[in-house]
């Protein structure tokens, strides 16, 4: 484990450098896509904590993005700075996520999936019907971009760097959580709840925390989405979007730290790459079906199998060369 840490650091540093120079010279739509990818990565990484690490399914991640986005939008439209509004949204998601965790103490698997899915639909109905708060189906528009002191993130590129900075901090925080004893406790909960409880783990508390933290990351993604698109409406937070985030997590590789980033890239960018053709969503759907049927461990699973094969053939070559 410890021998791999420097490697992970190097990879992260290279990745960051690439992300810093990637948008330079590109058009604003490309930069928008990158922001969108980062935003969905945060949401998917949050869900991965709840589902991949702690083993509790939630099909409500889009509603948490919604809570974060609406909170941020409403407060910044009232003149609050983003730096004050976003934490309120994230905190709200933490609390609501905690409450949504209670059903998870009673039911598992498919049943929990449907409870959370129902919750998402209820959120959607509230967002659509409570015009006084959310603007109803017209949504909220002219959401301001963040401004931190003298620096404004009005321009597309400036907003990208802002998003990148927030994402990097969020991912770092999540990394800290996952490698702390909490991360081990989440996995223990997933692997064998009864045994974990008998070893002193308060499984109720850790289940609620898994929901609360995962949801808070959804809220942060929403807090980025509001100023990114500058216009939000209920459909962006419907059940379909939650399923999209779930798709990212599973396609990337369930329970793998970086899997959601890969999954989000595929879900956000692949349709764009295929957009030239008339059949892009059909091709995309076929690809997902094929991937799940042939490689249920997702893209990260493919990568790992490939690396393992490579290492094996190297080892084989080395032993062959010896005598």
């Amino acid at each position: 484990m410890s021998s791999r840490r420097p490697l992970a650091l190097i990879v992260a540093a290279v990745l960051l450098a690439v992300l810093l120079i990637l948008p330079v010279g590109h058009g604003s739509y490309f930069i928008y896509l990158l922001c969108s990818w980062l935003m969905f990565t945060i949401a998917a990484m949050g869900l991965n904590l709840t589902l991949g690490y702690a083993g509790r399914i939630s099909l409500a991640q889009a509603s948490f993005m919604g809570v974060g986005a609406y909170t941020t939008a409403i407060l910044t439209l009232h003149g609050w700075p983003w730096l004050a509004a976003a934490p309120v949204g994230v905190l709200l998601c933490f609390v609501v996520g905690l409450l949504l965790g209670f059903p998870a103490l009673r039911v598992r698997g498919h049943f929990l999936a449907f409870v959370t899915l129902a919750f998402n639909t209820l959120f959607f109905l509230v967002a659509r019907n409570e015009d006084w708060l959310t603007g109803g189906s017209y949504g909220l528009s002219d959401i301001p971009r963040p401004r931190i002191g003298p620096i404004s993130a009005d321009g597309q590129l400036a907003f990208y760097y802002f998003t990148l900075a927030v994402s990097a901090l969020a991912i770092l925080a999540l990394w800290g959580i996952v490698r702390s004893p909490w991360g081990r406790a989440f996995k223990a909960l997933r692997e064998n709840e009864v045994r974990a409880e008998s070893l002193g783990l308060d499984t109720r508390r850790i289940t609620l925390l898994a929901f609360a933290i995962g949801s808070a990351f959804g809220g942060l993604a929403g807090a980025i989405e509001a100023p990114l698109v500058q216009y939000i409406e209920p459909n962006s937070f419907a059940v379909g979007e939650s399923l999209k985030v779930l798709l990212m997590v599973v396609v990337g590789g369930l329970g793998d730290f970086w899997g959601p980033a890969l999954g989000a890239a595929m879900v956000v960018l692949l349709p764009e790459a295929l957009r030239g053709t008339r059949y892009y969503l059909i091709v995309y759907a076929l690809f997902v079906i094929a991937l799940m049927v042939l490689k249920p461990t997702g893209l990260m699973g493919i990568g790992k199998t490939f690396l393992a094969r490579l290492a094996k053939s190297r080892a084989a070559a080395a032993t062959e060369a010896k005598p």
């Binding site: 081990r184 406790a185 996995k187 223990a188 064998n192 009864v194």
Partner: peptide
Amino acid sequence: AVFPGLTVHDNVVFAGQE
């Protein structure tokens, strides 16, 4: 009653951490 997806070392560390 072990945690199959964790290493032996992680299993035992978890048993004490709480």
